[in-house]
Write a protein that binds this DNA or RNA. Structure first.
Lengths: 203, 203
DNA sequence: TTAGTTAGTGAATATTTACTCACATTTTAG
DNA sequence: CTAAAATGTGAGTAAATATTCACTAACTAA
């Protein structure tokens, strides 16, 4: 008898996670447009029909994916926000980590900018907005801490500045993508940081 | 005899422009995913086949569209950059106009963030990158002028600051989109401006 | 006028899409 | 052990996609 592929039977949770991860990998490598039920099934190594044993539809796969990477990301950031040291160094580390995270997974910005995220599923949009908001809040607190300890100028608005901070990541990412990922996002981004620091630090 | 639709015969240039404009309208109203040969043809009021009399393929329609709106945009900005007055007010007016432009045509950010722009056609990507670069250069010069005239702090890097300026527009637009266009982009954006001005102006 | 080019069409094309169905096999609960 | 539930599959499906084709009608130059 010819060697048959053993049917790798997995339980629900394992498969759901596996499928969501495969989806993210496809987005990272080939973009959101290439995320089809066919490509996902192939990437996981199962049949298309089987996807529907674990998810109601394609949208739900997207949703699970955002859930998972959202948790991953917040978990990673928690370590930095919670660490000790002066607020300036800490804020810089957050910025560096944010850039590193994006550079190591192009799927994230692709998803952030995608129409699926902006027009699709309202739930999805709100889930993601909540993630950004939570992140901005952390940056905001860090900036305020910096002001209280006399590192950052007291005249600046800490929340608006936090938004500006995220804006710097955005624009760096956008340019990096338009230039075909040809340069280092981290390197370019950190040059932006230097100027940002000049803007907000006390003389 | 029943009223026949008169075949509205148009010359090449008129039709190309008309088609490109229709495409932009579709993106603005229904997103890039909804931009299909069928939807374009319907919006213009011609047959799908006729699209191919005027464009080689769908990609070329996209390309023409970017060309047209790119020129439009640079033309509009020229007036502001060229106007007199102090650099601070001028820069503020540029920011305001940029936000107004986006708010009055959601198609622009949709296109900017779209995969078609980032992964598709290399020519398209470069065309758009050139547009941003040209724009950033203008902002850069304006900031430098402000520094020379003693309005802006001399320690800041004018080019990095120009990029930060565009980043503020980006992040404001992204949040506006994620919130379902429910608030005024111009209003929210201008609050960001106030803080930006505090950051870069001399005390 | 006439002949050639340009602008127009409806109908067809091959692929690709998300999703379903009937049926097989494995796991698990009683 | 046995029956039900869960996980798996190949072979569909209808709808949508970009593009082509054979043909018609309208302008334009000689």
């Amino acid at each position: 008898m010819s060697a048959e592929k053993p049917r790798e039977r997995k339980n629900r949770e394992t498969r759901r996670e596996q499928i969501a991860q495969a989806a993210l990998r496809i987005i990272a490598q080939r973009g959101v447009r290439a995320l089809t039920t066919a490509s996902i099934a192939q990437e996981v190594g199962i049949s298309e029909a089987n996807l529907y044993r674990h998810f109601k539809n394609k949208d739900e796969i997207l949703s699970e994916m955002v859930e998972i990477i959202g948790n991953d990301i917040m978990e990673s950031f928690k370590g930095i926000f919670g660490s000790g040291g002066d607020p300036v160094g800490k804020l810089k580390r957050v910025f560096l980590f944010h850039l590193t995270l994006i550079e190591s997974n192009e799927g994230i910005p692709r998803l952030v900018f995608s129409e699926e995220m902006h027009r699709g599923n309202k739930e999805l949009r709100e889930k993601f907005l909540a993630l950004i908001t939570r992140y901005a809040e952390q940056v905001h607190l860090l900036i305020r801490e910096g002001q209280e300890k006399g590192f950052f100028r007291p005249e600046i608005d800490p929340l608006k500045t936090a938004t500006m901070f995220i804006g710097m990541v955005q624009i760096s990412t956008l340019l990096w993508s338009l230039k075909g990922f040809s340069h280092s996002l981290v390197d370019e981004g950190m040059k932006m940081w230097e100027n940002f620091e000049v803007c907000i630090r006390v003389e």
